[in-house]
């Protein structure tokens, strides 16, 4: 009798389970699939983020392997801004460098993407070369490379460095004589001198633009050809509006990528692990994060106003 009841109950539940709709099932599985990430998100991101904010308002001491956190208000922020010798300067420099490089990287990568999208012999090889910086110019290798003594001295000896300065000097003089504003001239010649830096930072951006250009439907170009549009017009009327959402993506990516490792992050790191001033380091990191957020919000606001969406 009881077993019979159990069986009936069991079959009852089984049918109940079967009636769970596809959508419900999907929702449950969706949560299960996301769960590993969620656990990590909470334990390796949210909690550290909150702690980091708390640290920034406290005095953090490490004694005999034990961490002691004493709340002290805005002391660390005041120290960072008014007492620390290089914080302000490093911060301003990082932001200015970023502001100088981002437009160059975006223009350059869009230009290269358009070229790499065209048909020509050796395209596969050229593409492979242009994406090489994605592999090589990241992290440690890039930072060691820039400090290589031999490279600098070799360049000096061969004289290429001298010629390099001379050439952009010439360019500078010509442009100044033409009546171009001095700031713009300095900026452009500076860009020519930093060409390696710019190329090595624009690998992923080229990839994104290239992917975007490839996804533009060929019919649009066919129409343009039939209507007798020139290559130049086609670029500004079709390619550029169609990839403009990606300009936003790329600007954001470039800013984030730039801010992930520069002089400022080194300073934050050194403050934490060389001088063991964890509170100050957290305060610096939060100021840094706030500034990045403001820059991102401003950029997103202004660019998204000009972006063309097909819908």
């Amino acid at each position: 009798m009881i077993s019979n009841l159990g069986l009936r109950l069991k079959s009852h539940f089984r049918t109940r389970k079967k009636y769970k709709s596809y959508e419900q099932q999907k929702a449950i599985w969706g949560f299960i699939y996301v769960l590993p990430w969620l656990i990590g998100f909470v334990s390796f991101f949210v909690i550290p983020l909150i702690n980091s904010f708390y640290f920034s308002l406290s005095k953090v001491e490490m004694k005999e392997g034990e961490v002691r956190v004493i709340f002290q208000g805005l002391q660390n922020y005041i120290e960072a801004f008014t007492i620390h010798t290089s914080f302000n300067r490093t911060l301003v420099e990082s932001v200015l460098n970023m502001a100088a490089n981002v437009p160059l990287i975006i223009v350059f990568s869009l230009f290269v993407a358009v070229i790499l999208n065209q048909e020509f012999r050796g395209r596969a090889f050229t593409r492979a070369v242009f994406f090489l910086p994605v592999i090589l110019a990241s992290g440690l290798i890039a930072s060691l490379e820039s400090s290589s003594l031999i490279e600098a001295v070799q360049a000096e000896r061969v004289g290429s460095r001298f010629i390099n300065i001379l050439s952009s000097f010439e360019l500078e003089r010509m442009m100044l004589q033409m009546g171009v504003d001095e700031v713009i001239v300095q900026y452009l010649t500076g860009a020519v001198d930093r060409i390696y830096e710019i190329i090595s930072q624009s690998g992923v951006q080229i990839l994104i633009f290239l992917a975007g250009i490839q996804s533009i439907s060929p019919q649009l170009y066919e129409v343009a050809v039939i209507e007798g549009s020139s290559g130049y017009e086609t670029f500004w009327k079709i390619t550029f509006p169609m990839v403009s959402p990606l300009i936003l993506v790329n600007v954001i990516y470039t800013i984030i990528d730039y801010f992930a490792s520069n002089a400022m992050t080194d300073l934050i790191r050194e403050t934490a692990f060389n001088t063991f001033n964890f509170g100050l380091s957290s305060a610096m990191a939060w100021v840094y994060f706030m500034i990045i957020s403001i820059i991102l919000v401003v950029c997103t606001y202004f660019i998204s106003k000009g972006v063309f969406y097909q819908e």
Binding site: F41, F45, L49, F55, I256, R269, F289
Partner: peptide, 12 residues
């Protein structure tokens, strides 16, 4: 998580 620089959370 993409937007927050890793330096902000690395001490905790």
């Amino acid at each position: 998580t993409i937007l927050v620089p890793p330096t902000t959370v690395f001490v905790p």
